[in-house]
């Protein structure tokens, strides 16, 4: 047994290293041109290339939700999509929510309800609440719990997060 997977390594003509190309990403209303290889995820592009580290990596496999951003207003896992596939889409990260120093109501509600502890899942949770409001499908408390289940909080702040989400729905504080 090798760490190298011999079967797959021998197939086809594989480039030794991928070529980079200019990738245009629209993030929080700003257009960025980056030199990226196709193997860079949106998440790694944000964190390692744009220094927008507000979006977190918690698993890199779509199993935790820490990397949640809004893509044209809808929430997605930024770890599971390639930067080259998201050109010319509007990406909103946690850094793009406050306007002129004024927190987005959902950000303020997270503080007021103490809906976090370590804060690492928080940007993803905030984007997820806003996405949930935008998507308009949550009607009941159980809907909220289920539709917020894509964001794991190991500190266990769910009770307070759900309270924020309820309030955001009532006040319709989307993007």
């Amino acid at each position: 047994m090798n760490t190298e997977n011999s079967l797959q390594a021998t197939t086809a003509v594989r480039p030794q290293l991928p070529d980079t190309r200019t990738v245009t990403l629209r993030v929080n209303g700003t257009t960025h041109q980056l030199q990226l290889a196709p193997w860079t995820s949106v998440l790694d592009a944000l964190r390692e290339h744009l220094q927008l580290t507000g979006t977190k990596k918690g698993c890199d496999h779509g199993q935790c939700g820490a990397c949640t951003v809004l893509l044209d207003g809808k929430r997605i896992n930024s770890c599971l999509t390639l930067a080259v596939m998201q050109e010319n889409k509007e990406i909103t990260t946690v850094e793009g929510l406050a306007k002129e120093g004024e927190l987005h109501p959902v950000q303020q509600a997270f503080i007021d309800h103490d809906a976090f502890q370590c804060g690492y899942c928080t940007p993803g949770q905030i984007c997820s609440v806003i996405g949930m409001v935008n998507e308009g499908k949550a009607k009941t408390l159980d809907d909220i719990r289920d539709l917020m289940s894509g964001n794991i909080c190991r500190c266990g702040a769910y009770i307070n997060i759900v309270k924020v989400a309820q309030e955001a729905l009532e006040k319709n504080t989307g993007l």
């Binding site: 779509g62 939700g65 929430r75 999509t81 894509g150």
Partner: peptide
């Protein structure tokens, strides 16, 4: 199945 985020993708 999955989560809201994954179903959006």
């Amino acid at each position: 199945g999955a989560t809201a985020q994954l179903r959006n993708m």
